[in-house]
Computed example of a mutant assay.
Amino acid sequence: MSFLYLLLNLGSLSIPLLYSFEKNMRFIKHWKAVLTSLTIVAAIFLVWDAIFTKNGVWGFNPDYHLSLLLFGMPIEEWMFFFCIPYASIFIHYSLEYFKPKLLIPLKAVKIITLLTFVLVVYLAITNTAKAYTFVNYSFLSLVLIVGYKYGIQHLQRFYIAFLIILVPFFIVNGILTGTGIETPVVWYNNDENLGIRLLTIPVEDIGYAFSMLFSNVMLIEYFKKK
């Protein structure tokens, strides 16, 4: 099924994109800020992605993607950084529109952020030989500290949104990493990660998703003000 990865991307994007034109919320009105943010974050993650692919930290099963490759990565991997973040941050902004008062208290958010920061810094420092673990948690620690200083009010909602996002995340990323199919779409070298899997998903992927999505939220808010 050489188009499975493509279908996962387009399927994830389709409903959020359709509802972006909803007459009251009109999320599409922020398209410039969203597209700019997606492009910046995608560029950062694609550089990281290309290096990891080249060095065998992870790779892609040609049985599940099209033959077009850019820098060793299938075109679907490039699409991933636009389709999946768009679908995910749409959930965050839907909460903002439909449940504006649904926020975690500021004091609790600060405690959660600082405790998470300490944990991921510890994991990064104690796993310097594991490329995915070290780079992933180092970047996450940076996102958390920037979020604490400049985007704490967004974290009040994003922590709630992220818990909701984890539901489709486990479905899509589960399939990508091998849940329900014979071999994974994306394989991981376990020598370069903690070797802890949630179903078939490396535990580091949760931090990876958080960094990618909250970076987009912070940039979108910045560009909306511009």
Rank of each mutant, 00 (worst) to 15 (best):
I171Y: 06
L13G: 03
A129P: 05
N189P: 05
L46Y: 07
D191A: 13
T36H: 15
L95G: 07
L70S: 10
H92A: 10
M79Y: 01
V167D: 02
F134W: 06
V34P: 00
V217W: 05
M73S: 05
L155N: 13
L176A: 05
L13F: 13
L142R: 05
G72S: 10
T113G: 11
P105Q: 06
F139N: 12
E22L: 06
S2W: 12
N193A: 12
F98T: 02
G195W: 06
F52V: 03
L142C: 12
S211T: 14
N55E: 14
Y97Q: 09
N189Q: 02
V57G: 11
E204Y: 11
V118N: 10
V203L: 15
L46G: 09
H154I: 12
S94A: 12
P105G: 07
N189C: 03
S94T: 14
L142V: 14
K226L: 15
M212C: 12
I160H: 06
S37Q: 04
F162E: 04
P202A: 08
S141Y: 12
V167K: 09
F81V: 00
N24W: 11
S138Q: 14
P184D: 07
T200Y: 04
L144R: 06
T179R: 13
T113W: 09
Y150D: 08
V135T: 08
Y159V: 07
T179L: 12
S215R: 04
N24I: 05
T200R: 08
Y5T: 07
N127E: 06
K110H: 09
L166Q: 14
